[in-house]
Structure formats: structure tokens, C-alpha cells
Design a protein around this nucleic acid. Structure first.
Lengths: 343, 343
DNA sequence: TCCATTCATGAAAACATTTGCAAAATTATT
DNA sequence: AATAATTTTGCAAATGTTTTCATGAATGGA
């Protein structure tokens, strides 16, 4: 007859059973050193017996941190974002934060809506992917007092502190690599750049580097291919079946490059002897594929980790602004590219 | 002089500016049809001008749904979990839910801690990955009133409604496929099964099917390899460099199979002529790899979607228990396997 | 124009906590 | 043993909402 009909256990019922006031129970959780050992024991027993679980919502309305961080990514379907989210999540979990995760599928309107929802949940901080966002998004964050960072890309003039790699240098690196190997007939395969500043930056850096070197890429060698191995395989095959063939293909990311590798194989070409193929990203598996992919490493794990560190310390330490950090991309020369005229 | 020192905007300040009571503002959001059009306009203006954002924490303590669903996965680092999470998240987002995501890295203790934290946030529902969990986890969920489902695996006698594929049949399918092709000298490469009921089920189903057919797998052909292309490539290479060589390798998932494919190539063997290799999962890219991988398709997108549907409707419709659903795995015969003695 | 409806709004209680302040209990000091 | 200092606890107000109930304002029918 004791528990009256499904009564949710709250701090009051715990207090009653432990014969103390609710305040003391609250203190037991938040400032245990302020409550006497024996009382602590009593409360602990009561908590355990009733299976009490604190209600963070009730804490949160007191202006106490919610313990959540909002993470907004374009999609998780790309292994690389999953990796960065995983590492971010692990890092902040150590500081007691849980992540609220949502993806917008490269739709800026949706990003705004998601952000609003996260703010309704009173997240303690916000992580956005990439540098470019709708102005409304920035304004909304500006109007809040929580810290916010841009993850994945880096630029020192970004609207918020950014932690990631500079995609311009990534693009330039790979283009220079191929140029230095004597390639002049170069095709490019990039994902649609709309709403995707990473791809945009890589692409324009590649083109600029080539142009500066006096190399121009004919229109029909500029492929726009969605992020998919099968599509890039198909497009590559089509490209390579023409009479005029490039000696190298620069792909906007490793997925496209993987498809390109398969496409080259399907076209009966040997990589790198007949054609060089490069990626950007250095995804899991890129080093193991045959032939191992020459690419630019974007250190996803490190980026997620550093971002988690920066944001959680900005939260814990209010007033301190998180600082940006450039996680430098690195050229990984492997077997899918080689000098043009040698051998 | 109007806004006194950084005062957070709340429903009261909005009400004041709109010259109505807080109750009316609350109604404006929750039952707009109950407030007069002109008043609605006035409130809208006030909301916009002050940049008011509702506080879900304050709503939640009224027993109103938090609008969050807790999702616990072993890791996001496996593309396949990222895929299922993505599709789950998209589905529930349509119903207005946001996901709280965390991963435990196959550590049951951590899973319990994560679950607790999510309950503190008063999630409206819980999704766990796989069938097997610490008993404390189940008991904790039992003590709550929120719906909960097990995603990824299916079993009709699972502790909670499960939505996913039956890994036993997946394992049996692939073993039968190879047997039906005349293979008798079969090696197995599986990830560590500890804390991983998926792998466990697949492995035991494979072994059982083989044993039933009178085929036994010698110990040194039973490889335990962590989820990594490079490790499985290395282990495969080692295996294939022995004098006794299997005619087929059954891999516990497509990542291992991918590594095995590379390993076979590195050992100078042709797949499927010299050796057949199979995976389980049908990950993105498995159909495009050369040679295209024979595997068992676990429909990740569908699983995530169905799970999202089931859970959100169980939440919206309290009292209704979500029902389990078997998303059948499907044998995908491609080019990495072929009959033994023919041709 | 008056009364009965219906509609729109506000007052106040409720939700599950935290916290500043003061009272009570304990311990230390003389 | 009496007082002072310190530790532990409870009271009550506060947090940002929602919701029930009651009241006042419009509207319709006679």
C-alpha cells in the first residue's frame, strides 16, 4: 500500500524515504561534500531502492548546463563524417556531455530548423560542419550566449573558430603533386559543390593551381559526380572510353577515387602505368586498396578530438572563447600515381 | 533602457511586450487555434523581435515529451552503423524528434552509464543495438515507462521488440551458398565475438551449417581478426601463403572480406578462380569492388527506417507496444565466389 | 435590449529541481 | 559547563513553462 499508483519517483519521495529534506538530496548530488557521511548513506540507499533518476530538465531550467552539445553534420552516410562525429562524441563524453545529433543533407533551410530545435533543448554548445552556413544560422547563434565552433574545415577568417583542415591547401597539394610528376592532361571529378564548401574549396584550389601552371582542363574532362562509388565508376568508364584520354584524374574525395580506380580497371587500364588517379581524404581502406591510393590525408579523428576538447573547455570555462586550430592535411603518396614520362 | 542587463528572454518578457499574459503565449505555441488572430499576430511580432526560443526543459518537467530519442550504438566507425543511425535519425526527425547519440565501444558497463544519462535527459524512447545487453540495462529500462527497441538484429524471442536481420540465417545462407558450390575446404575469418552478438550469431550459424554438411574447419583456418581492412589483408595473406590453402574464405563482414580480397590479390591469387571470398553486410561499395563481392545483404537503411517508424509511433501513441520486424537478409551472389569444380 | 452561448484571456497552481539564508546541531575552545 | 565557531540541514523562493478553472468579452436569438 505504500507506493500510491505509479507515482514517478522524484527528489521528494527520495527525501521522504531518507528522512531528510529535498534540499539535502539535491545537495547530495551536486555538492556531496556538504552533506554528512551518514546522511549520504541514507540517501544513497533511498535512491537505490526507489530507482531514482535525476531529471536534468528540471536542473536545466535553473540555468544549469544541460550537458548536451548539438552536432550538425550534412550526413552520416559518408564514413568520414561518422568518424569525426565518433571521435568528437568520445572526447566530450569524457567531460560528461552527450551529443544531440542531426543531419541536414546539405540543405541550409533544414540546418536552420535543426539549430533552432537544438537551442530549444538548451544545448551547451554547437558544432557545425564546414565554414559556410546560411546567414540566419550565424545570426541565431550570435544571439545566444553558447560557444560554437566550425568543424572539419579550417580558415583563419571563419565566422567562428574553426577546427579542421584547409581544403584549399589540400586541393593545391594534390594538384601540385601531379604537376610535379609531369602530368598536363588532367581530368577532374568532383561532387556537386552546391552547399558544400569543402568540395568547393578543393575544386577551386585544384583549378587555380593547374591554371597557374598553364594547364587547362577542358570542359568534358570536368566531371561532376555524386558521392557514390558506382556513379564515379560509371563516369570514369565513360571518360576513359573516349579517344582523348587524360594521364591523370584528380578526384574530389577518396570515394570518387575508389570508383575511378574500379572504372579504370573496368576500362582495361593499369593504374598507375596507364593513368594516375588521386583522391582527397584518406578514408579508411584507401591505403589498402589495390593499388594503394595517393591522396591527401584529412585527419578526421584528430579533428573530432580537438574540436571536442576545444568546445567542452569553452563550455566548462565560460567566457573563454574557443580558439581555432588548423589540423594540417598531408600528402600521402602511394601507388595510384606516378611520374608521367619516367620508366 | 528597455532591456535590463542581459535578461534572458522568456515567455514572460514576450507576453509583456505583446500585452498578454504568459498563458496566452503558451497557448499561442501549443494550441494556436485557441488564440484570436490579432493576438496571435501581436505575439508573433514580439517573439520575433526578442528572438525568443522556447525552453523544452521547462516543458519537459510538466511530463510533456522531451522530443528526444536515445540511440546507443557500439560505434559509428563502422559505416554500417552510421548508415542505420542516419536513416533512423531522418525518420524520427520527420516526427519532430531529435536523437541523443552515444557509443559504448562494445563495453557493457559503459552502455549502462550512457543509458542512465539518457534517462536523466528524459528521452522519450530508447534504441539499443543488438540483442544482448547487460541485465542491469534491461532492468533499468524495465523500470521506466518509455518504449524501447532493439535494432539491427532480429529474434522473435528477444527481450524487447527487435527490428533487424536474423544473423543466424545470414550466416547459414552464406555457408550454404559455398557448400552448394562444392566447397569443402573453407576458412573463416570473424571479428572477436565478445560483446558482439551479431558476429557471434553469424559465426555459430556458419560453423553449424558446415558441420551439419560434414565439413569441419581446422583451427588454423579459423581466424579472428579485428574490424579493419589492413588487418584482414595481412591475416589473409598469411593464411594463403601456407601450403594448405582453402578454396573459400567466409568473412564475418564485408570489411574483412574487402581486406581478404586485397590479401588474395597480394598473394597473387585470382578471385574467384583460385579462391572464393564472401562477406556479410553488403556495405556501400561491396557491389562495385573488383571482383564484386558475394555477400548477404543486411538492409541497414530499411532497418533504421522501420525502427524509427516503430519507435516514434510507440511514443506518440502511448500504451501501444512497438512490434518487432524481421528485415530479411538476402544472398547477393556476385563475382567473388564461384562453383568449385566447374569450368 | 436582454439573456444565453460561445470565445478569448488571465490568475494561480503545478511541475522537479536548486540555492540563499537562517536555524539547528555538532564540535572546539575556554 | 558555557560560549564560540563550524558544520549540517531545512525553509522558502525561484526557475520557465503548462494547464485548469474562472472571468470577461463578444455574439446570437428572442
Amino acid at each position: 500500500m505504500f507506493d500510491k499508483k505509479k507515482k514517478q519517483v522524484d527528489i521528494i519521495s527520495v527525501a521522504k524515504a531518507a528522512n531528510v529534506s529535498p534540499s539535502t538530496v539535491s545537495r547530495y548530488f551536486n555538492h556531496p561534500e556538504l552533506v554528512k557521511l551518514v546522511t549520504r548513506r541514507r540517501i544513497e540507499t533511498s535512491v537505490r531502492k526507489q530507482g531514482y533518476i535525476r531529471n536534468r530538465a528540471a536542473q536545466t531550467i535553473h540555468g544549469i548546463r544541460s550537458g548536451t552539445i548539438g552536432v550538425i553534420v550534412p550526413t552520416l552516410d559518408h564514413a568520414i563524417f561518422a568518424e569525426v562525429v565518433q571521435s568528437f562524441s568520445d572526447t566530450v563524453a569524457e567531460q560528461g556531455f552527450t551529443i544531440l545529433l542531426a543531419s541536414h543533407g546539405y540543405d541550409q533551410q533544414r540546418e536552420y530548423a535543426i539549430l533552432r530545435k537544438m537551442l530549444e533543448h538548451r544545448v551547451d554548445g554547437i558544432v557545425l560542419t564546414g565554414l559556410d552556413h546560411d546567414d540566419a544560422v550565424f545570426r541565431l547563434i550570435d544571439s545566444q550566449t553558447i560557444p560554437s565552433i566550425l568543424m572539419w574545415n579550417y580558415a583563419d577568417d571563419a565566422r567562428y573558430p574553426s577546427i579542421g583542415s584547409d581544403n584549399n591547401s589540400a586541393g593545391a597539394m594534390i594538384a601540385e603533386h601531379l604537376l610535379s610528376h609531369g602530368h598536363r592532361d588532367i581530368a577532374c571529378m568532383f561532387p556537386p559543390t552546391r552547399g558544400n564548401d569543402r568540395a568547393q574549396a578543393r575544386f577551386s584550389a585544384v583549378m587555380e593551381t593547374l591554371t597557374d601552371a598553364g594547364v587547362s582542363v577542358p570542359d568534358h574532362w570536368q566531371l561532376t559526380t555524386v558521392y557514390s562509388i558506382s556513379d564515379s565508376k560509371r563516369d570514369t568508364l565513360k571518360l576513359l572510353n573516349r579517344t582523348d584520354r587524360p594521364t591523370a584524374i584528380i578526384c574530389g574525395n577518396d570515394i570518387l577515387a575508389t570508383g575511378a580506380l574500379y572504372g579504370a580497371a573496368a576500362a582495361g587500364l593499369r593504374v598507375p602505368d596507364d593513368i594516375s588517379i588521386t583522391g582527397i581524404g584518406d578514408f579508411k581502406g584507401s591505403a589498402e586498396i589495390e593499388p594503394a591510393l595517393t591522396t591527401v590525408r584529412i585527419p578526421a579523428k584528430r579533428i573530432g578530438h580537438e574540436a571536442g576538447l576545444a568546445l567542452s573547455s569553452a563550455i566548462i570555462n565560460p567566457g573563454s572563447v574557443p580558439t581555432g586550430l588548423h589540423c594540417k592535411p598531408k600528402l600521402m603518396i602511394r601507388s595510384s600515381s606516378k611520374p608521367l614520362h619516367r620508366e
